[in-house]
Design a protein around this nucleic acid. Structure first.
Length: 439
DNA sequence: GCATGATCATGC
DNA sequence: GCATGATCATGC
């Protein structure tokens, strides 16, 4: 291999050279390369870019890929979103979390920043039909300095993860624990998964990696990847409750509705409280979709006069034929339970007025996710035997299964070949009571 | 009052 | 047309 056509010690030079990749695939630039044919390697476009385009030998050492420049190279798949911008296909995995090491570290001198402080992020158009060699690079090369002000929200999440491991709770980590920097599962998963050791506990923990959560990565792409984008990476989701909801706390929900000139809800309208919450969000400069793009999902909970939730909490429906073929980690329910929720809690007072009671973030703790998985596995098992006999709320402290459909005709096929009402997972009312008290 | 079964309006 | 978040309705 000849002389590399950039200065490997200069970040600017590397980034400028990376411009030459944009608009092309590796196949465009290296049409006759022998690796093309035998590469079914699904994840290694980054490695190939490093090797072919930059002429470096890939490795996974603790130092950055461009060691002299302290620059880490990452590639990420993007696709066209419905909003007319590119969105990330999935979270961006940055590096494995070393449970033994992180407990002794501080943010500024962390091995995470040693490797990932400076990231050159290249986006390619994700296309399952094409090999990694044929995927075109799009957007601008993105140079990210994780110690710059724009990425300030990372630090608190990194510390949250470290402190969880310090408490001997590495096995309890969840992506939903944090807002922008995630501790995502990395590894085989399933029953055969080999667990890792952790300091301060004998309990084996799943392998996890630092990642930009998908929502955060979207904001990065839409900020750094295009010209003249409004800076939106700086927004920290932790600001939302205070900014949008604080002034309405302890106010009657119908007064809040009136404040926003909301029509009186029709007798059958089931979304009034959610709508009121949405109005408060909007008045605070957010929206449901803005909240989602911050990686947060909003749920409303209404308490009766005795402080119990009026209803269980539902999740998206599942298909009988699908769940019997699925692994837990692939399921929608798993994904939801690693989500960060913003709970908007309304409470009915003895006198009769229902008020905005509490607004707080919550994500499901580990023990309850274990129990939820048990319910899911039991559901999977029972669907295969008799899809009409599924876990009821008395069978678990956390979750159960119940119908969720448009009407009595909303039936789908079961493994028994019969039609049965579509179902979904629910969090038990009694469980939600504890949740509300815990936040 | 609760568990369970059965919808409802909305928004994409 | 359909999934979704949420609530209604019934029976014990």
């Amino acid at each position: 291999m000849g002389k590399i056509p950039f200065d490997a010690a200069s970040v600017d030079s590397i980034v400028a050279y990376a411009e030459n990749l944009i608009g092309y695939s590796l196949a465009d630039l290296f049409p006759s390369h022998e690796e093309r044919a035998n590469s079914r390697n699904r994840g290694d476009l980054g490695g190939m870019v490093q090797k072919l385009f930059f002429g470096l030998s890939p490795d996974s050492r603790s130092e950055a890929d461009f060691a002299m420049a302290g620059l880490e190279l990452k590639t990420t798949g993007v696709r066209w979103g419905t909003t007319g911008q590119f969105v990330a296909k999935e979270r961006l995995v940055l590096m494995m979390i070393d449970y033994e090491k992180i407990v002794h570290e501080e943010w500024e001198s962390s091995s995470f920043l040693q490797k990932c402080r400076l990231i050159l992020l290249l986006a390619y158009l994700y296309d399952t039909e094409k090999s990694i060699f044929d995927r075109k690079f799009v957007l601008r090369p993105m140079l990210l300095d994780l110690l710059s002000e724009e990425f300030a929200a990372l630090r608190e999440d990194w510390e949250t993860i470290r402190d969880t491991v310090r408490l001997g709770n590495a096995h309890q980590l969840s992506e939903g624990d944090t807002f922008v920097l995630g501790a995502c599962r990395k590894g085989s998963g399933g029953p055969s998964e080999k667990l890792r050791t952790q300091p301060f506990s004998q309990i084996g923990a799943s392998s996890r990696a630092f990642s930009f959560r998908q929502s955060y990565l979207n904001r990065i792409i839409q900020t750094f990847g295009v010209e003249d984008a409004p800076l939106r990476v700086t927004e920290d989701p932790r600001n939302v409750p205070h900014r949008a909801f604080e002034e309405y706390l302890d106010k009657p929900v119908y007064d809040i509705g009136q404040h926003f000139s909301m029509e009186k809800p029709g007798p059958n309208f089931k979304g009034f409280h959610r709508k009121v919450a949405e109005k408060m969000l909007q008045a605070g400069g957010y929206s449901i979709s803005a909240l989602n793009s911050l990686g947060v999902e909003m749920k409303t909970i209404r308490l009766n006069t005795s402080g119990n939730p009026r209803e269980a909490m539902s999740f998206p429906g599942f298909k009988f034929m699908e769940i019997v073929e699925q692994e837990w980690e692939e399921s929608k329910f798993f994904e939801k339970l690693e989500t960060k929720f913003l709970l908007i809690v309304f409470a009915q007072e003895q006198g009769g007025l229902e008020k905005l009671h509490k607004v707080a973030y919550w994500n499901m703790p580990h023990n309850d996710r274990v129990e939820a998985e048990r319910v899911w596995q039991d559901t999977k098992r029972r669907v295969a035997i008799d899809a009409t006999n599924l876990p009821k709320s008395a069978e678990s402290t956390v979750a159960h299964v119940r119908p969720k459909g448009r009407d009595g005709n909303d039936k789908i096929i079961t493994p028994q070949g019969t039609l049965h009402l579509r179902q979904c997972f629910w969090l038990n009312r009694s469980y939600l009571r504890n949740v509300v008290q815990s936040v």
